[in-house]
Amino acid sequence: MEKDFSLSLEGTTLTVKLGETLGINNAPLLMEDLNAYRGKGVDKVVFDASDMTYISSSGIRTVIFAKQKLEKNPVIEFKNCCDDVRNVFNMTGLQNYISFV
């Protein structure tokens, strides 16, 4: 597995800078890292997808995890999401619960 993402907390906003893919190669690691922010008052998670070209169901699970397990029911935002990835969110019906910017 490769850790090609980084997380940073500024106030109550957690930014996740994603790599090229979010799937089996790195999603379990991201979920572990997100878990470390439980109880830290995060009310917004920004996924910076500027470099991302692929997400699988393992990757989508990390987005659902962020929404459900960070205590404050955080707002989920995706920055610069490519069409292929956006299309997968549309198929799963999650596009209505994510802000795409």
Partner: peptide, 24 residues
């Protein structure tokens, strides 16, 4: 198939993989 109308905060964490394969 997962309920794609269910709000994000109520979704089960698994169950999307096969659904996506069939859709795509």
């Amino acid at each position: 198939a997962p309920d794609t109308d269910m709000p994000l905060e109520e979704r089960k964490i698994g169950g999307l993989g096969i659904f996506l394969c069939k859709e795509m």
